Every structure is written in structure tokens, then in C-alpha cells.
Simulated assay, not measured.
Amino acid sequence: MINYDVYEQEILKGNIKNGYVFCGLDEEFIKDGIDLIVKKEVPEEFKELNLIRIDGMNTNYDEIMNACETMPFMGDKKVVIIYRANFLQDKSDSSGTKIYNEIKNYVSDLPPYTILIMYYLLNDKRDRPNKNKKLATLGKFLHVVHFDKLKKDKYIKKVEGVFKEKGKQIGRVELAYFCEKVQNNFDIIKREADKLINYCNDREIKKADIDLLMASSSEDDVFDLVELIAIKKIDKAIDIMKEILYKSDQHMLIISSIQKHFLRLYEIKLKLAKGKRVDDFVAEYRLPQFVCEKLISQTSRFSERQLAELVKLCVNTETKLKSTGIDKTMEMEFLLINTLMVKK
């Protein structure tokens, strides 16, 4: 298994193999990695014929095999992409296991004119692809690439490339500030870049514009934490809470942020019942539309009663944190465990 840096260098050297398996959390990042091969191997005028995309969640072995066996049209190579190939996950259903076993036997002898690329998305940041036995087996025949987070300099350079592709220059100071504020996910990065470019139009981007339009990374952490509470994955929620505390050892600030988030979800839940829509929340909360859409989606995981009780739990925990001589981290863990007791 190799990382993105090694993979990128190999592609730039022209050292392109016949088969790849990509995995990571960031689908846009993976798509950018695929484009490195596509741009080198498939001329624009032949993309409709020599570039095949197959939905890995709705396919079968015969469809994949037939796509790989068909000769390229007026070219030396064709690229077959199996996106969201969930049958590559360490655990899959019976149909996924069947496809995987058939693919495993096939990829040992791919046609020389075919470049097969399969990718799947990791469940979360604690999902370790190096422990996936399926990848270890496929790695004997295909190159497995983990699209992990880029190192700081590479990350900033790639984000700068996003602005350049959109025809917009951004200053070095503003670029570094943008990278600090934005979530390390290229789907979000591209959307945030679009917002900034459209908002600033022909003038240069300033730090004040970034502050105005972007949610903070701490808000993203709290959103992820609440999402795990909603699906009752408390062990993972505790892991995220510890990561937040590691970045900012401020228990009162974190409990206050969680409380405000539950309170906002409660408010949105009530207003949705009265007929409010996403545009109303964009105007009221002065948040980007996609953030409001995420909040609306998250409210569906809770009842009004649940949200009210969760706010009370946060208030009680905040009161305890103000006391002296207590283990604050343990109190935060108790809060997360107690959310399991709140019924709909």
C-alpha cells in the first residue's frame, strides 16, 4: 500500500499500472487522483468511448469483466472506473463478497489495454485500510493507494490549485488562512472556494471574506460528534471528543458549543413543523445553504422531546464543570454515555 504522494510521483513519471484500488475519506480527492491517469491515457475526444464508469453499489462481475475486456476505440488504453466499490470493504454482504471473490480471480490477468480503477470510501477516520484483508490480497496484483490527508505544504499547494482551476488568484496569507479554516475535504474545499470567488467577484479575496462565509472547523467537529450521538455510536463520539480536547483543552467552550448545537437543532425542528424552509434558515442564521441543509438533515434524527432533554443534559454537565476538584474529561464522557438514556 502506498500513499498519495508516492502515487502522484509515479503518475507524473509516466509509470502507470494496469490496475489500482483507491481508498480514503475524501471522494473528491480520490476523483482528482483518478483524473491524473485519465488525462494522461484518454484523449478528450475519445472519453465517451474509452472511459467507462460503473456504479460499484449496483453492478455485477459480468458487467465489470465485459467493460475490461472490450478493446479501446482508436487508442492504446481504456480506463474502467468502479466507483464506490463497497464490495472492497472489509465487511460486506453476501452479494458484495461474491463480486469480490470473482474480481479477485480476474485481476491477476487484466488485458494490457485496460486500466482498472476501483475505489471505496472509508467509514471514518479510525477506519484503517492496512487492516483490510481484501486489500492485502488484491495488493498482490493491483496497486493499493490510501488517499490520506496531505502534508501541510502539499495540502496548501493543492488547495491553491483549486482556486487556479477556477480562474481566481488568492494571496499567500489568505490561502494559508483559508486552509486553516476549511475542513480537510476537497468536496467542501471546492464549494467554499466557489462561494468566496462568487462573493468577491473581480476583487481580491480578503481574510474578512473568509471569516464571513466559512464555518469554523470546531463547528464541524461538534456536528460530527452530534451525528455519532444520533446513531448511538458513543465509543466513537468519545474518541472525537478527546480529539477536540487535544486540539483545544477548553471543556467549558466545548460543552457550550455542543449545547448551542442541540439548541439550534431544537429551534430548527420547531420551525420546520411550522413550515419554514432552508432559505428561511439561510437568512435567519446567516449560514451557507449547504450548512443549513446539513442541520435540517440532522434534525430528522431526533425528536423534539429528545433535543429538549439533550439540551438539559448539557446544562447540567456545564454546571458540574464549574465545580472544582472534578475530572472534567470524565464528566464529558458521562454526558455522552447519558445521551443513550434519552428516548424519543
Rank of each mutant, 00 (worst) to 15 (best):
I234M: 03
K232L: 02
L253H: 15
V315H: 12
K247Q: 12
K98D: 11
Q89P: 07
E41M: 14
R264T: 06
F302W: 01
K320W: 14
T329C: 13
L110G: 08
D279H: 13
A176Q: 11
H251I: 15
I244F: 04
T137E: 15
E267W: 09
N105G: 15
S95Q: 15
D93L: 13
I117L: 10
M57C: 13
R191T: 09
M330S: 15
L36G: 04
R191F: 01
K149R: 13
L321A: 11
Q183P: 06
K206N: 06
R128T: 11
I255T: 05
M214P: 00
R128G: 03
M214H: 03
A67N: 04
C200I: 11
L310S: 02
I197V: 07
K31Y: 11
K206H: 08
A85K: 01
S323D: 15
I337S: 06
V311H: 06
I81W: 03
E41N: 10
F334A: 10
P112V: 14
A215M: 07
K294E: 00
C179E: 06
N18Y: 05
N60F: 07
A273P: 05
M214A: 05
A208Y: 11
L265A: 02
E8W: 09
T317I: 01
F178R: 00
R203Y: 04
S297F: 10
E318H: 13
I81M: 00
K77G: 07
A193Q: 00
E227R: 14
L321M: 13
F262C: 08
A136Y: 07
K17R: 11
N316I: 09
K322V: 08
M74T: 09
E174Y: 00
L272A: 08
I231Q: 07
F141H: 12
L228C: 07
R84L: 09
E63C: 04
I54H: 00
V342Q: 01
V311P: 06
L225S: 02
R203I: 03
N338H: 10
R264Q: 08
E10W: 11
R305K: 10
M214G: 04
T339V: 04
E69G: 04
N123C: 11
Y246Q: 15
I240T: 02
S256Q: 06
D76K: 15
L116K: 01
I37Y: 02
L51R: 10
S216M: 07
D35S: 12
L307P: 00
K181F: 01
N132Q: 08
M341W: 08
Y285P: 01
K98Q: 06
V173F: 09
K166T: 08
K40S: 05
K152W: 14
V282H: 03
K168V: 11
